[in-house]
């Protein structure tokens, strides 16, 4: 079958703030949801500087879609349900001014995160960039580094 050529991506640009983020966009589950976890972190560029104009989306089957913009310090945060053992990760899609084509990554969460699958296929020295670090009280830290040392492992689903 001949496939249609896709529409190219373009950067989300700097002016999405009044269009894409919405009230409660970081709440994949409501406040008080039993077992809810908080996942948060910073988005940084190749200099280690904050990326204050990134937009992150999170998609958990059965839970929902989340969308948050980073703050002036590059920080973001979402509240969601712990992912199931079969898929112990939170899929993340990263958009930003300066980024011509979005990037996918995953925040692996909880004890099941140590298991095989994708993590086993990633070189050990880069694996930690995919693992959300527990900070206690159901809070996990997941930083995204777009470039350079400790560059986040990004994923390709086009195969």
């Amino acid at each position: 079958m001949t496939l249609l050529p896709p529409t190219p991506s373009q950067t989300v640009g700097p002016f999405f703030g009044h269009a894409l983020p919405y009230e409660g966009g970081g709440d994949l589950v409501p406040a008080g949801h039993p077992g809810a976890i908080s996942v948060h972190g910073y988005v940084r560029d190749g200099n280690g500087d904050a990326v204050p104009d990134a937009l992150l989306e999170f998609w958990q089957p059965g839970t929902g879609l989340g969308r948050v913009a980073t703050g002036a310090d590059g920080h973001w945060s979402v509240r969601t349900a712990p992912p199931p053992a079969a898929r112990p990760y939170l899929p993340v899609c990263v958009f930003a001014r300066g980024l011509m084509h979005h990037l996918f990554t995953r925040a692996y969460i909880g004890p099941a995160a140590a298991a095989g699958g994708l993590l086993a296929a990633v070189p050990e020295e880069r694996r930690s960039t995919l693992i959300a670090r527990p900070e206690g009280d159901g809070t996990y830290r997941f930083d995204i580094r777009l470039q350079g040392e400790k560059e986040t492992v990004f994923l390709d689903f086009h195969g």
Partner: peptide, 18 residues
């Protein structure tokens, strides 16, 4: 400063949440 230097890692898993 906002593009990764490394190639993305292919994910073949048909059950991927994505």
């Amino acid at each position: 400063l906002r593009h990764p230097h490394r190639a993305p890692v292919p994910v073949g898993d048909p059950d991927a949440a994505e």
